[in-house]
Design a protein around this nucleic acid. Structure first.
Length: 429
RNA sequence: GCGAGCGUAGCUCAGUCUGGUAGAGCGCUGCACUGUGGAUGCAGUCGUCGCGGGUUCAAGUCCCGUCGCUCGCCCCA
């Protein structure tokens, strides 16, 4: 036991009940994506490191990605995010795709970080992107997809909020405060930090960045002004569209939302859990109009978001919204084996039942019936069959309803139908 | 990279302060019950106390180191 090799730090083992949660999320994400007309796609899990270095800066990539050398000496990275791959794939077929393009994806990503609550080194991420449309209404659709997903998994508007801001609006407002263009990124960073620092500390940081007192006052007024969106024609149109799309309950303007990424050019959004004890966002995204041209494609606007599975699971867990240990029963029917002489007859019966479309678990060993029933009960089987010498001689099968504890003898060729009937009774109940 | 907490049976943990025979519950196996499971009773199984060193007549317990996990900070595409 002590000699078992440890799992890799920051990875998770997905036992069946854990895998069921991921599968459930995947299904919900797919359902919602496709409801809005998005197509599923995926890219490779391995990419040349240059794909990320171009955009994110090599140091960041080397520090926070899993990077290794292949046998030819190429530096490869386990993908830390999807957007560069998406952009590459679109650039490769730019002239052959129809726009606006709606794609979604769900898959594993890796980042070399220190594991903690809601964060690991290997995680799943849902990505939804709309390429080739640059209107605020397109942004609103992404917010609506997010809202539809929250609704789908049972997260109420009182429990989660999609916070919206616009980089162009903030840029103009910073200009009004006479903050020169080259300092605005620093100020964005400062804004991003507001919730994460104590106020005096934050103030000191602002001073360090060279903000004057009046600029500080102006900035604070800005961050508290929840009507500021009215100054932005883009956001006015955005909220109008969100309203029409029926998502306004979840969506709210928040001038302090900036998002760390430099490549966002317009609308940014971030979904936060209002009730749960996690500091991280559930989902984040925004508009990136320059990305295609940045990697050498023709200019093409885009907007998208990503949501990781780990924070989401923490939030849903705390709210009791994860599905009940869903259908852990591997098969509702178990075919017991009576003894060595009848074993093959039981195997044949199992095969007959499977041909009839039933999910059938056949006990592999000759064991006492009591033991087989106990096993059937533990794994949650609904129906057991017994095929002993008596049944065989009469061409019958004993079918036992494990929940009701009833047992009847039915002709062997009617067994499948009879069992089917028992299971269907459950479904209709 | 920094800080804190925790490592004891398959699992959840008590025992550590104040050194003196390694514990409980759950689980598992068997029996009561050789053609029938969820209950009950009885019996059985269960350990390098994370690892290494030190102090001591004696260490799960105290000291030093180390590894691992968890949580937080930093970072966060």
């Amino acid at each position: 036991m002590a000699d078992i090799i440890q799992p890799v730090k920051g990875t998770r083992d997905f036992y069946p009940e854990d895998k069921a949660v991921i599968t459930w999320l995947y299904e919900k994400m797919g359902e919602v994506s496709e409801r809005f007309g998005y197509q599923e796609f995926d890219g490779p899990f391995l990419e040349y490191i240059d794909l990320y270095a171009a955009k994110s800066g090599e140091e960041l990539v080397k520090e926070q990605s899993f990077v290794f050398e292949d046998k030819s000496g190429n530096l490869l990275a386990l993908r830390p995010e999807l957007t560069p791959t998406l952009v590459r794939m679109i650039a490769q077929r730019q002239q052959h795709l129809y726009y606006p393009l709606r794609w979604w994806s769900f898959g594993p990503f890796w980042r070399y970080e220190s594991p903690q609550k809601g964060r690991g080194r290997e995680f799943f991420q849902w990505n939804v992107d709309l390429i080739g449309a640059d209107s605020p209404e397109a942004d609103a659709e992404l917010a609506a997809v997010m809202a539809a997903f929250f609704q789908e998994i049972g997260l109420a508007p009182a429990q989660t909020r999609i916070l919206i801001n616009n980089r162009r609006l903030m840029d103009r407002e910073l200009a009004k405060l006479e903050i020169p263009p080259h300092e605005r990124n620093d100020i964005f960073h400062l804004i991003d930090k507001r919730d994460k620092m104590e106020f005096p500390e934050w103030e000191a940081y602002a001073e360090e960045l060279g903000l004057s007192l009046s600029q500080m006052d102006g900035l604070q007024a800005l961050l508290e002004n929840d009507q500021l969106w009215e100054e932005s024609e883009e956001l006015v149109r955005f909220f109008k569209a969100v309203d029409a799309l029926g998502a306004s309950e979840y969506v709210e303007f928040a001038p302090y939302i900036i998002r760390g990424l430099d490549y966002y050019t317009g609308t940014v959004f971030e979904a936060q859990a209002l009730t749960a004890d996690v500091s991280r966002a559930i989902a984040g995204g925004g508009r990136y109009d320059d990305l295609l041209s940045d990697v050498g494609g023709d200019p093409l606007p885009g907007v998208g978001f990503a949501a990781g599975d780990m924070v989401l699971i923490v939030v849903l867990e705390e709210l009791g919204l994860l599905p009940e240990k869903r259908d852990q029963t591997p098969a509702p029917v178990i075919v017991t084996v009576f003894d060595e002489d009848t074993r093959m007859a039981s195997f044949s019966l199992a095969a007959e039942l499977r041909r009839a479309g039933l999910k059938v678990n056949c006990y592999p060993e000759v064991e006492k019936l009591g033991k087989q029933f106990r096993h059937a009960n533990r794994i949650g089987s609904r129906v057991a069959t017994i095929l002993g010498p008596e049944e065989l001689a009469e061409g019958m099968v004993a079918v036992k309803d494990l929940r009701e504890r009833d047992q009847v003898q039915v002709p062997r060729d009617e067994a499948a139908e009879y069992i089917q009937g028992l299971l269907e009774k459950d479904l209709s109940a």
